[in-house]
Amino acid sequence: MTLSALKSIIHHRDQAGQNMLSISPTYMLYYLPLIVTVALVFGATRHENTTLVLNHAWQTAKWITGFMGVIFVVLYIIGLLT
């Protein structure tokens, strides 16, 4: 692989990375109150016992965060390859 080809790939990746994170990371803060609310309401609409509500909320928060994380990684990789 020539040096120019390597530079081209790095430049391409850099561009892709910038595109993926073209918004300020502080926008991610909008996610925090939303996940707390959604998880707690989901948990509380499935149980009466407070411990079970909190346990369900924690599981829901982890599941949603994990799901969105996977989507982010997939899109990021697609961004790098295209």
Partner: peptide
């Protein structure tokens, strides 16, 4: 009379 859940729903939904 489901007070804990009432508080959770009121605080979460109204604040959002």
């Amino acid at each position: 009379g489901r007070m804990t859940k009432a508080a959770i729903f009121f605080i979460c939904i109204m604040s959002t």
